[in-house]
């Protein structure tokens, strides 16, 4: 029963998500766009995390993607859709080049380096004023799809589908085994013949590609990029909190986390207008403190705890016959 359900639930969820614009107004769609943006970033972050490498560079590649898209339109005359693809390719290419060096680092050294990279990208773009518009940023002449809410929503949803597809591919292929082996014991993995550096590079480039794509979509959806806006630390911290809340090392966790935190943030804002950020922060701290494996991890551990009992009952029944 588990295999069909594992396909059916995501398909139903995707169908529901795709049909949402037909039954909801512009406001829920605007909130959903924001939730889906963070969801794609959370999934991409988790993909690299499965190797044990914790990146704090999400905002860096997201911002790089936003600027790549803006510059490709304004300086290169590229079409909006192509500019989004270019944003992903550019972020992936930068990750490939930098990955050759920084993926030799481990643990906190890698994390700090990715954090520094995001800041370096921001400083370069902020100070390269003639080309990037400097601190005031760049403004597009018009939004993609003329800013039409439904189309913008479907565009962000497409990014989530790409992220989910890539993440699922990681889970279903030998990449999962390789990344898990690297995370659990890198020396043993190397001794088993796993090409550690190759797999780390693949995970880093693919996750950065997705972050670049999402940055490009953000740029096309809101029509401007400034260093303060697109390199905002929230683009690192929120996806990270969402993945931790939902559960790490798999696709469902970040999806659940993004949905819950994204919707909770808006709900709290409407119902506690004068203190919503405080309550939101407390929720994140409590969940991470008391549910370190995340909600999906908690559900799975409960299911595993219940499953053997059920099996025993069946076995007992069989013996009885």
């Amino acid at each position: 029963m588990r295999r069909p359900l594992s396909f059916l639930i995501p398909l139903l969820a995707l169908a529901a998500a795709a049909l949402l614009p037909l039954v909801s107004g512009p406001y829920p769609l605007a909130v959903a766009r924001s939730v889906l943006t963070y969801m794609a970033l959370a999934i991409s972050w988790d993909m690299l995390l499965r190797s044990g490498q914790i990146s704090f560079g999400i905002a860096g590649f997201f911002g790089l993607g936003a600027y790549a898209a803006a510059l490709s339109v304004l300086r290169g005359g590229m079409s909006p859709i192509l500019s989004i693809l270019f944003a992903g390719v550019f972020a992936g290419a930068v990750a490939l080049i930098l990955g050759l060096v920084i993926l030799r680092l481990r643990a906190v050294y890698f994390s700090i380096t990715t954090l520094a990279l995001a800041e370096i990208f921001r400083v370069i773009i902020q100070n390269w004023s003639d080309f990037t518009g400097g601190p005031e940023g760049l403004v597009l002449p018009k939004l993609i799809f003329n800013g039409e809410s439904k189309s913008l929503y479907w565009l962000v949803l497409a990014a989530v589908v790409i992220a989910c597809a890539a993440s699922t591919m990681f889970e279903k292929s030998r990449i999962r085994l390789a990344l898990s082996a690297i995370r659990n014991n890198e020396q043993s993995a190397a001794a088993s013949g796993i090409g550690i550096f190759k797999y780390l590079l693949v995970a880093f480039v693919v996750s950065s590609f997705i972050q670049g794509i999402v940055g490009g979509i953000q740029l096309q959806g809101y029509g401007f990029a400034s260093p303060d806006a697109v390199f905002d630390s929230n683009y690192t911290l929120l996806p990270l909190a969402m993945a931790l809340l939902g559960g790490i090392h798999g696709t469902p966790g970040p999806v659940i986390g993004a949905l819950l935190l994204g919707i909770a943030a808006e709900f709290l804002k409407l119902h506690i207008p004068y203190g919503h950020l405080v309550v939101y922060g407390i929720i994140i701290v409590l969940v991470i403190l008391f549910m370190p494996q995340g909600l999906y991890g908690l559900l799975r551990s409960r299911r595993h705890a219940v499953a053997p009992v059920a099996e025993n009952r069946v076995d007992a029944g069989a013996w009885g016959k």
């Binding site: 512009p26 769609l29 605007a30 924001s34 943006t37 953000q218 809101y222 401007f224 806006a229």
Partner: peptide, 9 residues
């Protein structure tokens, strides 16, 4: 910006 847009919507 994104929150501001949602607010207007």
């Amino acid at each position: 910006g994104d929150k501001g847009v949602a607010a207007i919507e």
